[in-house]
Design a protein around this nucleic acid. Sequence first.
DNA 1: GCCAACGTTGGC
DNA 2: GCCAACGTTGGC
Length: 153
Amino acid sequence: MNYWLIKSEPDAFSIDDLENAPDKTEHWDGIRNYQARNFIRDSMEVGDLAFFYHSNCKPPGIVGICEIVSGAYPDHTAFDPNEKYFDPKSDPENPRWLMVDVKFCRKTKRMIDLAEIKEHADRLEGFALIRRGNRLSIMPVSKEHWDYILSLE
DNA sequence: GCCAACGTTGGC
DNA sequence: GCCAACGTTGGC
């Protein structure tokens, strides 16, 4: 059982979009970063929980919790030239990019925004979200950090 | 809109 | 394999 934080720009796909999706489940496509891909491929397991984080908005922050409900499988959007995240170098015979399905669990009682999380940096040492220059769209969260952040809710 | 911090690309 | 140029991310 692992814990994660996954980022999404709310203009593109928000926590409400996930809640309103059929079966409250959606595939998490568009990951085009090897480190994030490797997390999906090697470490994510069905039943893992993830913070749903709104990025590139005002204010950015954690807005909900979702569950990983599938193993990793090929991200088909990489094969389609009409898709925003088309990657001609991803071979369908040997897919370069993977995705998982995530299911809405609940919204947090309130948004736990980035500024607040940073105020607790001393209790969140090593948390990838507040490391300098962090740009990962999927990152692991330790159980200690997970519980602590939820205690702020 | 700005820009720092990265990741990727491609010439050599 | 090095590294400059370029593109992207994402907070501010």
